[in-house]
Structures are given as structure tokens and as C-alpha cells.
Simulated assay, not measured.
Amino acid sequence: MNHNLEQTQLLDYNHSTIQSLILSRNWASLPVKEQILHVYNYVRDEIEFGYNRSDNVQASEVLHDGYGQCNTKGILFMALLRALGIPCRIHGFTIHKQLQKGAMKGWYYHLSPKEIIHSWIEVLYNDRWLNIEGFILDLAYLTKLQQKFEQCTGSFCGYGVATDDFQNPAIFWNENDTYVQKEGIVQDFGTFDNPDQFFSLHPQKLNPIKRMIFSHLVRHLMNRNVRRIRRG
């Protein structure tokens, strides 16, 4: 399992800020189940849903930003788990861009690729690989979104969500799989030992100009939309 515990360029878990976080939360002294639960809840709710400058950013940068999406929150989640000696890997996909509609809208929604690179994290717990995706949306954001669309009690796709049960998605971890975007998946690329491998093989399908526009403009517009929803 050494390859599922290694530090990489993106999983920079020996960075001082990551080690300081683990120390301040006293996570290393907890049983494994409690370690996973505390790290999961931290990444879900204390790292807000939002869009970083890119998918392939280091865990320490995600921690510094204080926000992230599926891919970047996943990088931080993996780094924290590996720092605690818990094996994990990344499972790569694409999702349909409709899942982002609402957070992404107008001209930049139309310019975005039809399929967007997505990932969830698989954690080895009690000799079983668990699928962990439910940390993407912080509860504050998701709760406001559920209130905004309170008439929806079944399937929902948009604003960063793709689930069959919008009012009760499987986002609470108790030795189970968790999901919040699974129903938007189009392609399955399989598992990878680390995000460095995955994103080098499967970058977002953006040309250099669109990539620059996203990093310097579009993501800020998307984050503004997300903040408006979170504020209600």
C-alpha cells in the first residue's frame, strides 16, 4: 500500500500548514474511523465549495484558499488522509457540464466543454475501498440551495449537484460511500494512485486562451454566484 500513502507534488502533506492543521485538531490521536470522519467533515464544511485557479493545485494551496471543488477538495482530502497513514487513491471521470449550470451561466457556460473532468476519492477502510464524493458542497451552501428549490424532492442536476435525492443526498459519512455529483458522470477513467497522474493524463479540455480566461475571470464569476446562493 506504499503507493497509496506517498507524498507527491500535489499531495504535499509534509507542508507546514497541513501538519499544523493536523496537530491543532489532534487528529493523529483518534481511532481511524474518527480520523476519516473528522477530516471528511472538515473538507466538506470548513473548506467551502468554490473554484480554484486550476484542478492541479497543491493541497497546501487549497488549504490556503479555503475553498475548492471536486478535484481540489479531493487533493486536500487525500493529503490529510495520507498524512495520517490512511491509504487512498483517486477515481477519475467526466461529468456533463449541465451539473454546473447555475454556478456557471451565460456566455461562459456556453463556452465551457460539454464534459468536465471530475473525480472522487477512494479510501481503504476495513479492507474495503469506499467511494467518497460527498465532501464537495459545504452544508451551508447545500442547505441554501435546497431551500431555493424546496419543491424539488427527487432528482436534481445543477449548481454543482447531480443526485437522485436532492433533499437527502448521501453526504454524511459513517463507514459508507458518499455522493453528491455521481448522477452527472459520463465517462469513467478508472483509478489512479495519485492526482498528479490523473490530471497529467486527463486535463480539462480547454485551449490555452480558454484556460487563462477561466483562471483569471470565469472562476471569479462562478465563485460570486456560489457566494450569493450561500448568503441566501
Rank of each mutant, 00 (worst) to 15 (best):
T191I: 10
N207P: 01
L201S: 06
V180E: 09
K205R: 11
N207H: 06
D193E: 15
S200A: 14
M212E: 08
D188Q: 14
D193P: 04
P195N: 03
S215V: 03
M212Y: 09
S215W: 07
L201I: 07
G190R: 06
V180G: 07
I209C: 02
H202R: 09
I185H: 04
G190M: 05
K205H: 07
Q197Y: 04
E183T: 00
N194A: 10
F189H: 02
S215F: 04
E183H: 13
M212S: 09
Q197W: 03
K210W: 08
N207E: 07
T191R: 10
S200V: 14
N194I: 07
P203F: 12
F198G: 03
K182V: 00
T191G: 07
S215L: 08
S200G: 07
Q204D: 15
E175S: 13
Y179C: 05
F189V: 01
R211V: 02
F199A: 04
D188I: 14
D193R: 12
N174P: 03
L201K: 06
F192G: 02
E183N: 15
F199S: 03
T191D: 10
N174Y: 15
R211N: 10
F198T: 02
H202F: 15
M212H: 07
Q204Y: 04
V180Y: 10
T191S: 11
S200I: 12
N174M: 09
Q197N: 14
M212N: 10
H202I: 13
I185P: 02
R211T: 13
N194M: 13
D193V: 12
Q197D: 11
G184M: 00
S215T: 12
D193K: 14
F199L: 15
N176M: 05
T191N: 12
D193W: 11
K210N: 11
G190N: 06
F189D: 00
D193L: 13
P208Q: 05
F214G: 03
F199Y: 14
F198I: 00
K210V: 01
I185K: 04
F199E: 07
K182D: 04
I209N: 03
Q197H: 13
Q181H: 13
K205C: 03
P195I: 01
S215A: 15
F192E: 03
E175H: 12
F189T: 00
Q187K: 15
Y179G: 06
N174H: 11
G184F: 04
D177T: 10
V180K: 10
N176Q: 15
Q204L: 14
S200E: 13
H202C: 06
K210I: 06
V180A: 08
Q187Y: 15
D177A: 07
F192P: 02
Q181E: 10
L206T: 01
T191M: 06
F198L: 09
T178S: 08
P208W: 08
D188F: 05
D177R: 06
Q187L: 15
N176C: 15
N207W: 05
G190W: 06
I213C: 12
N194P: 08
F214E: 11
S215G: 11
F199G: 01
F189Q: 01
P208K: 01
L201W: 05
F199I: 00
I213Q: 07
Q197L: 14
K182S: 11
N176W: 05
V180P: 08
S200F: 06
E183S: 09
